[in-house]
């Protein structure tokens, strides 16, 4: 067995996807800047995209790629709206600290 195999198993891709997703979750939970939180969400979406494409390769079908395409579209739309919301929140509250935005309480 050589030091490096010529090709990697598919599960490594999925594992990478899981690691990236978990990092996204960690960022979402630990960061306090609302923009960074938002970027963590994008990271999670990307991780999911990776597993979509890995499965597309595994099943030899293009459908998984279509799915990730749609995810991208939604992510783009979400980025537009989400950043708009962030702008509005900042205008109204002059803060980007997520812990200070707790008007959902009660």
């Amino acid at each position: 067995m050589p030091l490096l195999p010529a090709a990697v198993p598919l599960s490594w891709y999925l594992l990478l996807s899981a690691v990236l997703f978990s990092l996204g979750v960690a960022g979402f939970l630990f960061r306090k800047n609302i923009i960074t939180v938002f970027m963590s969400i994008e990271l999670m979406l990307n991780a999911v995209n990776l597993s979509f494409i890995a499965f597309s390769y595994h099943l030899k079908q293009v459908d998984g790629q279509i799915f990730s395409f749609f995810v991208m579209v939604v992510a783009a739309a979400e980025a537009a709206v989400g950043l708009g919301i962030i702008l509005t929140v900042y205008k109204n509250r002059s803060t980007l600290e997520i812990d200070e935005i707790d008007s959902m309480k009660n």
Binding site: V8, W12, V19, L20, L23, F30, R31
Partner: peptide, 21 residues
């Protein structure tokens, strides 16, 4: 060449993600 490429970019991805967090 597949395996080194995967490992390289997987490393970059994870490292960047950690950096993001």
């Amino acid at each position: 060449m597949d395996a080194p490429l995967f490992l390289l970019f997987a490393f970059i991805a994870v490292a960047s993600a950690i950096s993001l967090v």
